[in-house]
Computed example of a mutant assay.
Amino acid sequence: MRLAFMGSPDFAVPALRALHAAGHEIAAVYAQPPRPAGRGQRETPCPVHRAALELGLPVRTPARLRRDAAEHAAFAALDLDVAVVAAYGLILPPAMLDAPRRGCLNIHASLLPRWRGAAPIQAAILHGDAESGITIMRMEEGLDTGPMLLREAVPLGPRATTPGLHDALAALGARLILRALAEWPDPEPQPVEGITYAARLAKADGKLDWTDSAVALDRRVRALNPWPGTYCALDGEALRVLAAAPATLPAGTAPPVPGTVLDAAGLVATGEGALRLLRLQRPGRAPLDADAFLRGTKLPPGTVLG
Rank of each mutant, 00 (worst) to 15 (best):
P9F: 12
L16P: 06
L19H: 11
A22D: 14
I26Y: 07
Y30H: 13
Q32D: 13
R39W: 06
R42I: 15
R42H: 05
C46S: 11
P62W: 11
P62H: 11
R64D: 13
L65W: 05
A70C: 08
E71G: 10
A74F: 00
D79Q: 13
D79Y: 12
L80T: 04
V85Q: 00
Y88E: 08
G89V: 08
P94H: 06
L105E: 00
L105R: 00
R114S: 10
R116P: 05
G117L: 11
P120D: 12
I125M: 10
I125C: 07
H127K: 13
I134G: 04
E140Q: 15
G142T: 03
P147C: 08
L149Q: 06
V154I: 15
G173R: 04
L176C: 08
A180E: 04
W184G: 01
P189S: 02
T196Q: 15
G206C: 03
L208P: 00
A214R: 05
P226T: 04
A238R: 15
V241S: 03
A245M: 09
P246R: 14
P258V: 14
D263F: 13
A264Q: 09
L267C: 05
V268L: 10
G271S: 14
L275M: 10
R279Y: 08
L280K: 06
K298W: 06
P300C: 15
L305S: 08
L305T: 10
